[in-house]
Write a protein that binds this DNA or RNA. Structure first.
Lengths: 196, 196
DNA sequence: CGTGACTCGGAACAGCACTCCGTATTGCAA
DNA sequence: TTGCAATACGGAGTGCTGTTCCGAGTCACG
């Protein structure tokens, strides 16, 4: 249940094996996620790490906690990739467009991540929450900057856009002919047009 | 494996209990799909029908076969809802827009159908195939008519658009705040704009 | 080196899809 | 009406999943 954004990381007073196993698990999970997708069986991750399943659950109570931990750096990089100060940028819509494509590329390269983020499966809600918590403010800022510049219509909510883009990235693995990037572009174009 | 569009329906030479049970299953499945979504446990459908699980598998080898059979009439209606003769319509883009929204509304009201259609789970491929087979020609016709009228850009493929719209309908149950309809509209707007 | 607290491992439980085979039902013909 | 061959049915069985529990093992500190 607990969202458990950061389980507990005062970092200092943890037993050495705990810290070692946590890192082992993160490495194993990263490898398995690439090989079998983010919804790979828990046992497979445990085997890859050479640890028991209970150890996984002790460190990462829900699957989303593990996924978030594995991708944390990349999500942070994504958040940081957006221009911090909007006023400095004279082309806010271009900045928005660039960042959304970065976001989409990130999702597409992590097999099953987009699917999982919008899944109703138990344990995945906090994954959704994490993404919303970290990236929604960024997207909202970009969106408001564009709206202020009159480049897009102002009544589109960042939340809707974020979920929509995430949704458009679903199925790229399953259906090789599907071009998610083109569709994301189309959505962004629609955003700009409604301003007219 | 078999796509099994129409398992075998010469209708005449089937045992009476077979036909009766098939209808019972369809009714039960329809009820359960509404209550628990299209990915409800097989046992639940069997219980609702008062039949064994093997009977379900005998009539509908894959889950998609059952889903397709339950929604066949509505999918047909959807296909028929598109204007048959494009030339007669002087506003092809409006027709396209209307039909796509019909399609989206259909998906949204069937809990989990959009998710299932783009799932990589075994047994769901034929669901995707069925939708593509039945609705893609319709969408393609609408799209070509709009393109011919110069209302939209011509380089968007019907397949991409269909999957994109389907994707945008994912998550409406899980995330009540997500407005899929608005996002579908945005996508359609983008389609029109790129023509400019 | 001993002790106490914390952690690990894998067996155990529960829920799912899907299959198999003995039993029951059906339709036809005598 | 009744017997029989073909066919369908039911539910137990198999195998894979997530999740929990507790005895055995490991670590840090005195």
């Amino acid at each position: 249940m607990a969202t458990a954004g950061t389980p507990a990381e005062p970092a200092g007073h943890k037993r050495s094996d705990v810290r070692r196993n946590e890192q082992t698990l993160l490495d194993a999970a990263a490898a398995v996620f690439v090989r079998s997708g983010v919804d790979a069986p828990v046992r497979e991750i445990a085997a890859e790490a050479g640890l028991g399943v209970a150890t996984i659950y002790r460190h990462f109570p829900t699957r989303a906690d593990l996924v978030v931990a594995v991708f944390r750096h990349q999500v942070d990089a994504l958040a940081a990739a957006a221009p911090m100060e909007a006023p400095a940028d004279d082309k806010p819509y271009e900045a928005l467009r660039r960042w959304v494509h970065h976001f989409a590329d990130f999702l597409v390269t992590k097999h099953g991540l987009a699917e999982a983020m919008h899944s109703d499966q138990a344990g995945f809600e906090s994954l959704h929450n994490e993404f919303v918590e970290r990236l929604l403010p960024v997207l909202d800022r970009l969106l408001k900057a564009s709206a202020a510049a009159g480049a897009i219509c102002a009544d589109v909510r960042a939340y809707d856009l974020m979920l929509a883009v995430g949704n458009l990235c679903i199925g790229v693995d399953t259906f090789p002919d599907y071009r998610s990037r083109r569709m994301v572009d189309l959505l962004l174009t629609g955003l700009a047009t409604t301003a007219g």
